[in-house]
């Protein structure tokens, strides 16, 4: 079984990041949201493996959780 690759895997990370932001340039919030949704679906289909997709969803959810604090 393959598992989610969370090690650096993108060649030219700064270029990729700039491309991702450029894609959204000039778009309204609604247009950006729609674009993101389409992009997620395209990438998810490319990955295909349900276990990897589930791991990715969990990783994304976890990273958004607030860290536990004592006060």
């Amino acid at each position: 079984m393959t598992s989610l690759n969370t090690r650096p895997n993108i060649d030219g990370p700064d270029d990729f990041y700039a491309e991702l932001l450029a894609l959204h340039e000039g778009l309204s919030k609604a247009e950006s949201d729609a674009l993101n949704a389409r992009l997620i679906l395209i990438l998810a289909n490319h990955i295909g493996d349900r276990d990897v997709l589930r791991e990715a969803m969990q990783a994304a959810a976890r990273a958004g959780e607030k860290p536990a604090s004592n006060g």
């Binding site: 949201d33 729609a34 949704a37 389409r38 997620i40 679906l41 395209i42 289909n45």
Partner: peptide
């Protein structure tokens, strides 16, 4: 709102991309 965003994304993709049709 988010479920409508994904729904519309699927429908937009389905026109050109076969993969989205089963969704």
């Amino acid at each position: 709102e988010i479920s409508r965003i994904f729904r519309d994304a699927v429908l937009d993709l389905a026109r050109e991309h076969e993969f989205a049709r089963p969704l």
